[in-house]
């Protein structure tokens, strides 16, 4: 009798569970569709496209095996573009991380009055359209733009900021840092809020000065989140596209051409005539793999460091 009862309850329970499972998947359908159609499937087909000799204009794509990759690894423009992506990242990241941390610390622990207003100001560039900011900056750093006029006031000669390769990269980095520093400031502020106010007071009682409090007490506590912030910063700097496409178009003479602008140009606005979707895909796949690898390496290093810290 008893066994039978528990048998029926378990059947009921199983039915209920199945119903819940079905409902759950019904609820997941829109999200899964949006993922599969516009992210999952494109990731896989990018890999497939990279093996095709295909312009994208016609349907006659020819399977070319690894030919695209063979050509890519001999393409000095591709190496130049990947090199520039890394150059941009390597110069940007230290400035982004330190300036944003300084601002966050200032607004979290040193000044209180007006901090909200300043925070809004430093965050403003983040929410504005990058492609439009790029065009405005093109004028500001242009031949007769504000920067050169300012230099003129101090009796200095105008500089051809965007016309010379060395300066163009510097200008792009300056604008990139200006644009993104607010994001990392917010990340650091979130990290700093996890430091209890008691620690600051204890440090003050122990006679630590501001710098000691920061470097000896606060910094070690926020370091784990700092690792995550650094990885995010590295990856998003490597992805730079909008700003460079609109400000310099990769020029002058490919001096600011990054991986993303290389892919875009090869796929959609080839100056040499026919677009090459297959070849562009192989560049995108290679660069995507580099970024994913950077993420994995970063997380591994972070994991090792945090393990060592707890031991």
């Amino acid at each position: 009798m008893k066994a039978k009862a528990s048998g029926t309850t378990s059947v009921l329970k199983r039915q209920r569970l199945r119903k819940i499972n079905i409902w759950c998947w019904v609820f997941m359908i829109p999200a899964v569709l949006l993922y599969v159609l516009f992210l999952g499937y494109p990731i896989l087909s990018s890999v497939f496209y990279s093996t095709l000799d295909w312009s994208g204009m016609t349907s006659n794509a020819v399977f070319a095996g690894l030919d695209n990759f063979r050509e890519l690894f001999g393409d000095k423009y591709f190496f130049n573009a990947v090199g520039n992506s890394f150059k941009y990242m390597v110069i940007c990241v230290p400035f982004l991380l330190t300036i944003s941390l300084a601002l966050a610390y200032l607004f979290n622990s040193i000044i209180k009055k007006g901090a909200a207003v300043f925070r809004t100001v430093f965050f403003m560039p983040v929410v504005t359209t990058t492609s439009i900011v790029g065009i405005i900056m093109m004028f500001i750093f242009g031949g007769t733009g504000s920067v050169n006029q300012m230099l003129g006031l101090f009796g200095m000669k105008p500089v051809n900021w965007l016309g010379s390769g060395d300066y163009a990269m510097i200008v792009v980095v300056i604008v990139g840092v200006w644009k993104d520093v607010g994001t990392y400031m917010i990340y650091w502020l979130a990290a700093l809020q996890s430091v209890s106010q008691d620690l600051y007071e204890a440090a003050m009682i122990d006679g630590a000065n501001r710098w000691q409090t920061f470097s000896k007490i606060v910094l070690p506590i926020i370091m784990p989140i700092g690792g995550t912030i650094a990885i995010l910063c590295i990856i998003s700097s490597l992805k730079v596209f909008d700003l460079i496409q609109t400000m310099t178009n990769g020029g002058p003479f490919f001096a600011t051409d990054v991986a993303a602008t290389f892919v875009y140009r090869t796929a959609y606005s080839s100056a040499t005539g026919t677009p090459r979707l297959g070849y562009a895909s192989s560049a995108a796949v290679t660069f995507g793999a580099i970024i994913v690898a950077m993420g994995i390496i970063g997380n591994t290093i972070k994991g090792i460091l945090s393990k060592r810290r707890t031991v």
Binding site: F38, S46, G56, A267
Partner: peptide, 21 residues
């Protein structure tokens, strides 16, 4: 896991197939 794994994929990686789709 699948969703999380694709977090770092740059848009430029997927934009060509998205347009073809």
């Amino acid at each position: 896991g699948i969703f999380m794994a694709s977090i770092t994929i740059p848009l430029v990686f997927t934009v060509i197939p998205v347009y073809e789709l």
